[in-house]
Structure formats: structure tokens, C-alpha cells
Design a protein around this nucleic acid. Structure first.
Lengths: 196, 196
DNA sequence: CATTAATTTCAAAAATCCTTGAAAGTACAC
DNA sequence: GTGTACTTTCAAGGATTTTTGAAATTAATG
């Protein structure tokens, strides 16, 4: 069913995502496996993958397990065939959303925890005070981005596309709003949280 | 000038960012150096850093060089002192912007190039066609996000904060616009690019 | 221009991370 | 329950990345 070997172009694609993966905390193998599954026109089983990418069977098994840990795979069984067949979600948006959300949970949330803990520690010296301010600034930024992402994540691919096209133009809307506020003599602090 | 040793809390902070760094394609050392410089209340020279973090002098030198490659450091000389003193920008937003932009240039742009090249390759089989569609979908998503980021990057920290607070509420604006369009019987395709 | 102070380079050692084959585990079919 | 087809685990070996100290380089000073 699946091709015996990869085309030149397919290989370039897979190879690139392997390299990319290794800059992103997932191993080359895992990156390549995912790239292959992403472009495959039919679901593949572990042997297909091992064969096409020349990895050991066990390496593929571990790679698939890791990808499942990232919630990035779908799998299915076929009647009369005991092997498990894997594929990626069809929608690229879904893939990126899942990836981003998983990173958020694995990296951003723990970072916020550490920062919160550090911020609770008592300050003794002038340096401690400076340290505290710096951590607070970082906490504020990360925390806000985190919430923004959780918020934005709910939107459909279509809505996200519109929002992105709007891009920095949204700034104009905000400026218009701000001019209006100042015209009306209203102070930002008087507004409810979600209208600032 | 700088403290002889790090407080418990400072160490926790630095240690965490070392671990984080190692998940992000920069080494533990580099992550720790940056965390230290970020919280330091005065600029530090390479010896200070090596001493405080117990790294070899040469390791610190390479780490600083890498951080400069990321455009994440400021440095200064003092009269009567030959040593170079390093600090991070004061504004966390600036740091994150620089980091994100550098990653964009190092990872996203090359990925787009590879995808463009692959998309130009001739298709022979049915599988090639499917492959082509998948790459196109990925190209569209990454390309759009990339442009969105370039666009958004120009905004001030203040504007970005407002935008983030707006978050998914922006969706309401869009829906309002879309309802208006459909009420007026205007098709999206008739609008100029930046109004869709 | 020689001396000294600081920085950088680089090849080797150390640490870490990845990959593998062999063995153990699982689950289905008869 | 036994055999079969597949999957997973794991310790050892391999590969890659980090870290280091010694030597080379650069730059300032008298």
C-alpha cells in the first residue's frame, strides 16, 4: 500500500523537520517520524516507518510513544490485521494548536510556578528587591501571554485566520477606542478588566 | 560590587532557566548565564559569572558569545577597568521580542524556504499530489503566522498589552464585521486584502 | 615595544542524549 | 492453554553536545 521508498522531495521535507525537531526538544527521529506521517497518504504502521526511514523497530516504537504523549497522533486497527496504523490529524491548525498547548503545559506552567514560589520568598537586601522586581516583570509578561493563548486557542481556524489578517491593524481599533476614552474623559482604570 | 554568592531563591530561578534553556536549543550554561544577568542588579563581567555559577572561564566566554549572537546582551566598559561588563536589556518585552524574532529568522524562515522549494518540485504520482497539498497547508499556516508576527512585532509593549487583553474578544469585533458584510451583501473576496 | 590583563580558540575529556538488539510482554486465534 | 504476530522495555554501545584547561590572541599601559 505504502510506497517502497521516499521521493527526493519527500526526503528533503522529512530531513528538514528532523533537524528542526532536534532544535525543539524532540529528537531527530521523532521529528522525522512525524513529518513522514504528516505527508503519508495512508496511515502507516511501525514497520512501514522503520523501513522507510531506516530506523530500528524499537526506535520507532519509542518515537511513536513520545508522539502519543504529545497527543499528536491518531491510530486505527484494521480488520484481520493486528498492527496499529498511525496518522496525524488532518488539520494543520489542530496540530499546531495541540503542539503549542502541550508546550504551554510542559514549559510555561512550570515556569510560572517557579516564579510564583520565588516571588513569595522573603527579601532581605537591596539586591533582593531588584531581583523581585525583575521576576515580577517576567511573571507578568509570561502570565499574560499564557492567558492570551488559552483564550485565543478556543477560536476556530477560520476565526484565527481573520484575526491574523487583521494583525497590527487591530492596533488602529484600539487607538480609536483610546481616543474615544480620552475624549469622553474616562480613565482606563475605571473600566472593567476586560475592556481595558 | 556583586554578591559573593547567590541566594537560595536566585539559585532556584537560575537553575530553572538553565533547564528550560536546554529544552530550547540553547545549552544549560547559556540559560543560566542569561538568567543571572537578568536578575543581577549591576552589570557583571565574565569572571563574576564564572565565579557565581561555578563554570570555567572559557565556558562563560563561549556562552556570552552565543548570547551576543542572539542580540540579547548589552555591554559596557568602565574607566580604568579593561574588563567588559554585561547586562540584559531592562525591558522584558524587548527581550522576548528579540528572542522570538531571532528564532523566526533562524527556524521559521529556513523552514519556509524548504517548503517553497519542495512545492516547486514536479509531481508524478497520486501520492505526490497528496504530499503537495499537505505541504501547501503547512506553508500557508506558517507563512501567515510569520507575517502576523512581523506585523505585531512593531507594536509597543503597551499596545501589545492592550491587544492581549482584548484576546478572543477581538473575535466579537470580527463577527460584528462579518454580520455587517453579509447584511450589506458584500462578498469577502471583493474586499481589499487587508480588510478581509 | 615589552609587559600585563583580559578574552578567545581549540582539541580532548566528560556528560548527555540517542539508537539498537535481545529479551520480555501482550493480545489475539485456534 | 499454546502458538503466533506484534509491541514494548531496557541496558549497552554509539553519537552528539558540553565543558574544560592550556595555548594563542588581542588590547591597553607605561
Amino acid at each position: 500500500m505504502e510506497p517502497e521508498h521516499l521521493s527526493e522531495t519527500a526526503w528533503r521535507f522529512i530531513h528538514h523537520f528532523g533537524e528542526m525537531g532536534s532544535r525543539w526538544g524532540i529528537s531527530r527521529t521523532v521529528g522525522q517520524i512525524y513529518a513522514l506521517l504528516y505527508i503519508a497518504h495512508v496511515p502507516l504502521n511501525a514497520d512501514d516507518i522503520a523501513h522507510l526511514l531506516s530506523f530500528s523497530r524499537s526506535n520507532v516504537s519509542m518515537g511513536l510513544k513520545e508522539l502519543q504523549g504529545w497527543r499528536l497522533l491518531r491510530s486505527e486497527y484494521r480488520p484481520g490485521d493486528r498492527r496499529e496504523y498511525f496518522r496525524t490529524p488532518e488539520d494543520v491548525w489542530e496540530i499546531f494548536r495541540t503542539l503549542a498547548d502541550e508546550r504551554r503545559r510542559r514549559e510555561v506552567e512550570p515556569t510560572l510556578s517557579v516564579l510564583r514560589e520565588c516571588l513569595l520568598d522573603p527579601m532581605h537586601t537591596r539586591e533582593d528587591e531588584h531581583f523581585h522586581k525583575r521576576m515580577q516583570a517576567m511573571y507578568d509578561l509570561i502570565s499574560m501571554s499564557n492567558e492570551w493563548f488559552i483564550d485565543i486557542q478556543k477560536l476556530s481556524a477560520e476565526d484565527l485566520t481573520s484575526l491574523m489578517h487583521l494583525g497590527a491593524h487591530a492596533q488602529k481599533l484600539l487607538h480609536a477606542k483610546n481616543r474615544l476614552l480620552s475624549f469622553a474623559g474616562i480613565n482606563k482604570e475605571e473600566l472593567p478588566e476586560d475592556m481595558r
